[in-house]
Simulated scan of single mutants.
Amino acid sequence: MRKNILIISSDHTGHGHKSITESLFEQIKDDSDVRIHVIDGFSLGGPILLNVGKSYGPITRTAESLWKLVWNVSALKPKMVDNLIEMLIKENFLKLLDEVKPDLILSVHPNFNGSILNILEKQQIKIPFIILIADLVNIYPLWADKRADYIISPTTEARDKCIEYGIPDENIKVLGFPVRSRFFRNNPKRKVTYKKGTPLNCLIMSGGEGVGNMKTIAENLLDNFDCRVKIVAGRNEKLKAKLEHSLNSKYGDRVEIFGFTKNIQDLMLSSDIAFTRGSPNVMFEAIAANVPIVITGALPGQEESNPAFAQKANLGVICKDTDDIKDTIHQLLENDCEKLNEIISCQRKFINSHAAEDILQFLLDVEGNSYVPAVNFSYN
């Protein structure tokens, strides 16, 4: 039986939502009767809402305190956010439903859960609605709407937070964080060695928006260790140009600077250590690639608990102060890289390599009403 799945995602608020969606697409076989239609939720609200989505990058790059304020207001007033977005997207969303005729709706962005559920409820449309949480620990109240048929959680920590928000335990499924297959390393015996004449390969990245003190981290590494450093500046073109000007002239071919790249998995798989902020998507891609992570910071709000989460599970270490980079790396390398290799082992045991497959199968197993073309939609 053919199944149409409508995914509400985002193209502009980081790259994690798109990556999650792509990981689910990968699970669809050529002969499958599954059809997935993806829409950027912000595009449903016209220019006003789309510009809000596009502002994520500039705000998180240059004004973390403003981002924290936005996050806190949204967390305190979730119904206000839901009602505002409902008003902006209602007409286009109802038209989309009539066009796609979905058997199930999956939301991977918190801003559209309550708003879409409001619309479905008021229009008396019965379609299974499932939320896939894209954060790890400190989740928005917007992720936890009691009206959703199910909430898929990547971690027990996020599940516990949902329960705090009043979601029944039986409506929450902990299935792991979905990662695209190309990030997984097929080497169960991988180990890192660091000896004279064998440079350490380091990767510095900070999510799709390129935030963080990459220059200072790179200088600490290049001045104190026999290493090669690759830096991913993401969409931040000004940062890329600045790093090229300041680092390439001093360190030559020991450092390479990249902008936004679709081949980030190749950079991860060729690295011994990755330096990143606490972005859940980047963290889990590095864990899938079996690369120990040094977490250098996190966005306030949804990412702030992620570094401690990773360190507690021994998936990486925290180093918020760039002055501590040298000592942190020395500790990882001492005793023939004992700590690094311990992290590699823990990552292999921790990651669910079948998370995307498990999630898609769960979606296909959900039973619900088939979509009935609307005849009484109210667009007013």
Rank of each mutant, 00 (worst) to 15 (best):
I151C: 06
G252P: 05
D149N: 13
P280K: 11
E357T: 14
I36E: 05
S181A: 09
D226Q: 15
D223N: 12
P102I: 09
L24P: 04
I318V: 14
Q27I: 00
L106G: 01
L221K: 05
G278A: 15
E342P: 00
L175M: 06
P199R: 11
F284R: 10
D169F: 02
L267V: 10
T328S: 14
F284D: 12
I119R: 01
M214Q: 15
N236M: 09
E22W: 10
I163H: 00
T328R: 12
L360Q: 08
S279I: 08
C202G: 04
L120G: 08
I167W: 00
N92M: 01
Q27E: 15
F350R: 05
I264C: 06
P178Q: 07
E256C: 04
E334R: 13
I20N: 01
I329W: 04
I343C: 06
A218M: 11
P141Q: 11
V81T: 15
D135Q: 15
K29D: 13
E22K: 15
I8L: 15
S271P: 04
D31E: 13
G259S: 13
D160K: 14
G212R: 13
V192E: 02
K240E: 15
R190D: 06
R228L: 09
F377H: 14
I8T: 03
S305F: 11
R348N: 05
W143F: 07
L247Q: 04
S74R: 10
G14A: 10
Y165E: 09
D98E: 13
G176D: 10
T261M: 11
N224V: 07
V108R: 02
E86Y: 00
N118V: 07
L203Y: 01
Y150K: 13
L117S: 02
N83K: 11
F362N: 06
Y56C: 10
F25Q: 04
D266C: 08
N186I: 01
K146G: 06
T193K: 10
P58K: 09
N51R: 07
E304G: 04
I152Q: 01
N306H: 08
L175A: 00
I163W: 02
I257P: 03
I172F: 00
C337A: 11
C319W: 05
I151Y: 03
P102S: 03
I8A: 03
N341D: 12
A218Y: 02
F25E: 09
L50N: 10
I139K: 01
D272A: 07
S19H: 08
Y379S: 00
I167V: 12
L340S: 07
L84N: 00
Q123T: 04
S55E: 07
K312R: 14
N263H: 14
I163G: 01
R2K: 12
G46W: 07
E367G: 06
V317G: 05
P373V: 09
N4W: 02
N171V: 05
K54Q: 14
S345P: 01
D321W: 05
E170Q: 11
A148D: 04
N236F: 08
D149A: 04
E26S: 05
I217P: 03
E244Y: 00
E157W: 02
D40G: 00
T62M: 11
F183R: 02
H17F: 12
D223I: 00
G197P: 04
S10W: 06
F309I: 13
S270M: 07
